[in-house]
Structure formats: structure tokens, C-alpha cells
Amino acid sequence: MAIEGTHIVQAAAFLGAGLSMGLGAIGPGVGEGLAAAKACEAIGKNPVEAGLLTRTMLVGQAVSESTGIYALVIALLLLFVV
């Protein structure tokens, strides 16, 4: 089993892609969960504004998800470009 330089680079890229997406999913996952938890609390206190609160929650979650999307982009770059 001859190990060449290009193979090692490719192997590192694949492993790195997996780790990038995996580790990058932890923070946004917990953060979005907290955002949704707070939104549920607010709806519990004031059910009349449920539609507005859900929209606000989604916008906040979309912003906090952007780090997860950066991780996705990096993983895809590592997979297909490197």
C-alpha cells in the first residue's frame, strides 16, 4: 500500500470536511434550540402575537444558522475543490 502525497492531502481533506461540518453543527444546533425555547416562552406569555413571534424566531434562527452554513460551505469546498 504505497502512500503518496496526493493521497494524504485528499484523505486529510475528506476527514477535515467531516469534522468541519460535524463540529460546526454543535453551536448553531444548541443556539437555535435556545432561540426557539425563548420564542415558545414568549408565545406562552402572549399567545395573541404568535404569528409575529414565530416569524421573528425564524429570522433569528436563520441568522444563528449562518455559522452552520459557513461550515457547510467549507465542507463542500474541501470535498469538491481541494
Partner: peptide
Amino acid sequence: PLNLIGELA
């Protein structure tokens, strides 16, 4: 570009 990727995601 990031907003665009966010929409596609």
C-alpha cells in the same frame, strides 16, 4: 453570497 447560500440551504 452568504445570503444567497442561506436561501439555497
